[in-house]
Design a protein around this nucleic acid. Structure first.
Lengths: 224, 224
DNA sequence: TGACAACTGACATAAACTTGTCAGGAGTGC
DNA sequence: GCACTCCTGACAAGTTTATGTCAGTTGTCA
């Protein structure tokens, strides 16, 4: 029955997303066996992912498939979008260092300044907004470095703690960052494994931008 | 000892913020008596608020005071701040309404103008970021309506479930929205009570903008 | 110095949460 | 019809969390 550890569920959701991202259809039973968990838990986890906005489709008699979800219909303001906006800012303000937090805090004010027709009342309304969410904490400490490394196509030396607790040091070519299922991930070409790998930002011990640049070709890039 | 109910802590944090916002100094013992909870819990709750970014100062021998925290020194943007800014703008363009999206665009333009050559590649890297977080769900369903009503100075008919479970229907003049301690609140002049009241958005059953406008004078506005 | 009140840690207890098991319902394809 | 699978509800057992109580420490002010 309920064997639990501190972040077991987060790890499982992450792994589940990784499996689904691999493509194809996945039966709940297979996923359960893969994650060493009961089928019922898979259903609950998939429900959690769906509730978090992950585009996973379950078809009875077939299995689960991850939809593409690159379709952003130009619909006007919905509640979810507003929520996403505010929560996105909240995450930002918890990014760790003071610079990020300060920038996120002043972001609301600057946006209100740029709002064309909605006027002054709104600016006051948003100025007093607090931004909580303290849990993430140091999770995003390496985000700025990785982001600029992606932009500059700069190699990065990573000290990374794998899911099984083993610490490795490797050189990677950062390609993309994602925020999915409440955790940040980095997609990169790993020069240690010579393959595309995904890294969880909260498992990165240290990251150091190297003076060495790289070229994203068809073999080592995203669109291979 | 630990008597718990589903959202007891959220309610308590909300009430604690309300008390602190009243101004003045507050002793933990008084707050504990007011919230019918132990002093230890008050210390823990205050720590939670601080961790969430609430500007509360505790002085030994005196009590708690809520700082003003309106100081945004006009410093120039550092690299990290630009990172945060770009991330926030990326989130905005994914999830914002037209006004916010336009603001994000204009701000991005200003930044790109100010920066020599960096900007573009970086923003593209963020385009693929997902924005999950679905727990709150329908909590913010009424936020767009309230926001536009605040901007238009439009009265709103509210069906509201009070903390004690009683449902009331009233006409209010919306003044401000806040996001504090993980819950949205609406500050408004209540025509039912003839006073300034705060409403929790997750307790609003329905909200309907009325064609009737209002004037925010010294008696019914925020700066009375 | 002493009074005061913010803090911190440790422990016990009760509530809430997570998971597994079981049972059954419901849609899809043969 | 049947097989397959998603999906849901309910219950039990284990784990985690929240809170209260107690003890002690530390900073502030008179």
């Amino acid at each position: 029955m309920g064997k639990q550890s501190i972040h077991q569920r987060a790890d499982r959701l992450f792994e589940l997303m990784r499996l689904l991202r691999g493509g194809g259809v996945h039966r709940a039973e297979d996923l359960a066996a893969r994650l060493e968990v009961s089928v019922r838990t898979i259903y609950r986890d998939v429900a959690r992912l769906e509730a978090s906005g992950v585009a996973v489709s379950g078809t009875r008699g077939t299995g689960y498939v991850l939809r593409d979800e690159m379709t952003l219909p130009p619909l006007s303001l919905s509640a979810e979008e507003i929520e996403a906006l505010n929560l996105g800012l909240a995450v930002l303000s918890e990014a760790g260092d003071d610079g990020l937090r300060r920038a996120a805090g002043s972001l609301a004010g600057k946006i209100d300044d740029a709002l064309p027709a909605e006027g002054l009342a709104q600016r006051d309304a948003w100025k007093t907004a607090f931004v909580p969410f303290a849990d993430a904490g140091r999770t995003l400490a390496h985000l700025p470095l990785l982001r600029s490394a992606i932009a500059a196509k700069q190699k990065v030396a990573l000290t990374y703690t794998g899911p099984s607790g083993d610490v490795t040091r490797r050189v990677i070519r950062p390609l993309r960052t994602d925020y999915v299922a409440r955790s940040w991930t980095l997609t990169a070409w790993c020069e240690l494994r010579n393959d595309i790998r995904e890294f969880r930002l909260d498992l990165i011990e240290s990251a150091e931008a190297l003076p060495e640049l790289f070229v994203e070709d068809s073999g080592t890039g995203l669109h291979s």
